[in-house]
Computed example of a mutant assay.
Amino acid sequence: MTTRLFDLTGRVALVTGASRGIGEATARLLAGQGAHVVLASRKQEELDRVAQDIGANGGRATAIAAHQGDSAALKHLVERIATELGRLDILVNNAATNPYFGHVTDTDAGMIDKTLQVNVKGYFELSSLAAKMMKAQGGGAIVNIASINGLSPGMFQGIYSITKAAVINMTQSFAKECGPWHVRVNAVLPGLTDTKFASALTRQEAVLKGFLSQVPLQRMALPEEIAPAVLYLVSDAASYVTGACLTVDGGYTA
């Protein structure tokens, strides 16, 4: 029995922000466990590259461009999944934006709106659409990629940190209200991870050195080290886990 706890054969999984970083690593891992993975992000050509590589390695993947900050695009995305694949068992809300790095009081209105639209409203809308589809088929699992910044705000990352705190609360709200639908909702909170997304921090040697001095494992995570936490939460191994926030940060918040 235990050998099949992570088997996702027959399940359809939607991963946003799947063209690189944590999203790509997660999509590859879920496909490797048997899921048919729907890859979503803004650019079709980047998704096609990942989908083709998953297929070449024996997995199944469908690439559908959709912007996490576009409500109509998210609705169309879920409708296509329903029409073409007939079900949705797993949603991984991973796509996010962090367009501003600087003093919180200098954050302009455009940056606030963009960050809230993608990181909060987009997660909320896609979770709502997915949860209703999952309810109709008898259940499912949603994982939101939040951040340790949602627990304690990162310096010069104010609006981003605020949105990630909202994602943590959103996760718990959906878990409470969607539990009776047999829809489990959890979050993964990565620490600093070596991705293009985190380059505003990682390219500044002094900032990076200062941050890593506070990490017991003394290094950044790789995207492939975050993905297994997602696999656990969407799998049968976590069948009684909902409303949880799993921190993967090398001990930073210990």
Results as ranks from 00 to 15, higher is better:
H67W: 07
M111K: 15
I168Y: 01
Q137R: 12
L88W: 01
L212Q: 06
T105A: 15
T97I: 15
N149Y: 11
P228S: 02
I168E: 04
I159E: 02
G122I: 10
A51G: 06
V143A: 03
K176M: 14
I64K: 06
V183H: 03
A131R: 10
S128K: 14
M111G: 09
K43R: 15
L85P: 07
G158H: 05
G55Y: 01
P153M: 08
Q137N: 09
V15Y: 00
S127I: 13
G23F: 00
T195K: 09
N169I: 13
V248Q: 04
L246A: 09
T9D: 08
V120K: 09
L233R: 05
A72T: 15
L192F: 09
S152H: 12
R42P: 05
N119M: 06
P180K: 11
V234R: 04
N94K: 11
V185L: 03
T16L: 01
I145R: 05
N57F: 02
A136F: 04
V37E: 00
E177H: 12
H36W: 06
A63E: 02
A51T: 07
G34H: 02
F156E: 15
N119K: 10
E24V: 05
A141V: 08
P190F: 00
N93I: 10
V120S: 11
L14R: 07
F124L: 15
M133Q: 14
L246T: 11
G251T: 11
A206L: 13
G10D: 03
E45F: 07
Y232M: 03
T3A: 14
R60F: 03
A72M: 12
T242C: 03
Q52N: 12
D194R: 13
F174G: 11
R219M: 04
I81N: 05
A131N: 08
L212W: 01
F174Y: 07
A40P: 10
E205S: 15
D108Q: 10
G55A: 08
R11Y: 02
E125S: 12
C245N: 15
S19K: 04
T253Q: 08
Q157C: 13
L85M: 06
V188L: 04
N93L: 05
G86H: 06
V118L: 05
G32M: 03
L126S: 07
A65E: 02
G243L: 05
V143K: 03
S152A: 14
S161F: 00
A66Y: 00
H67Q: 13
L129E: 04
V92I: 13
T83P: 08
A131S: 13
M134L: 04
D70P: 09
Q218K: 15
V183Q: 03
L85F: 01
I112M: 12
S152D: 13
A141N: 07
P216S: 04
S213Q: 14
D249I: 08
P99I: 11
V118Q: 05
L201F: 12
L126R: 11
L231W: 00
D108C: 10
P180F: 00
